[in-house]
Write a protein that binds this DNA or RNA. Sequence first.
DNA 1: CATGAGCGC
Length: 80
Amino acid sequence: MNLFVGNLPFTTSDHDLRGLFEPFGQVDSARVITDRETGRSRGFGFVEMPDDAGRAAIEELDGSDMGGRNIVVNEARPKR
DNA sequence: CATGAGCGC
């Protein structure tokens, strides 16, 4: 399933994201979205993983603390 | 190359 991860610290990298979700299951892909013009982080990202692992990750990570901020994790919407 | 609600090229 596709997961949307928001409210991330600007210092969070795609690898950091993967490390967060790996404990819950196979991480198909994990990436933090960066601004195409400046390259700086937009503070949110996407993670793809099995359905069961995704549901577990949402319950454990949504609202959890990361870098001093409470991150948001929920199912992502279809790409625009 | 800036910044803080929002959904990726």
